[in-house]
Design a protein around this nucleic acid. Structure first.
Length: 107
DNA sequence: TCTATGACTCCGG
DNA sequence: CCCGGAGCCATAG
């Protein structure tokens, strides 16, 4: 059987494209995949692959820059800590100057 | 096959 | 910007 690239595999590949010090949104990834409305699926995939350390899921936030997935992380402070560690300003579970760090130039 | 669920997003107030 | 409601798509059971 062929293993066609499933949605969640595409999400993984896309998420891995986010460089250090940058972040992206579920909507941006979903849009890149072809369906802007499937942003929920992006989160669903990350949830399924959350044990996969190869995915920088901490660089994926919702449209407002809010760390929606932080509660699903191993540690409640892990996500915010990682972002700050990369030079990203995070206050009250939200990224400051999201536009400045937003990565939407997927290739 | 159908139903339920979700780390979202958009719209109107 | 916050709140409530609706839409959308893929996976699991």
């Amino acid at each position: 059987m062929k293993t066609e690239k499933t949605f969640h595999q595409k999400v993984i590949e896309t998420a891995q494209q986010i460089p250090y010090g940058k972040v992206s949104t579920y909507g941006a990834i979903a849009e890149f995949l072809g369906s802007k409305r499937s942003a929920r699926m992006v989160g669903w995939v990350l949830n399924s692959q959350k044990n996969n350390m190869d995915i920088p899921a901490h660089r994926v936030v919702n449209r407002r820059g809010l760390l929606t997935g932080k509660l699903h992380f191993q540690g409640v402070n892990l996500m915010q800590n990682l972002l700050i560690s990369e030079g990203i300003e995070v206050v009250d579970n939200q990224i400051v100057n999201l536009e400045k760090y937003l990565w939407k130039d997927f290739s």
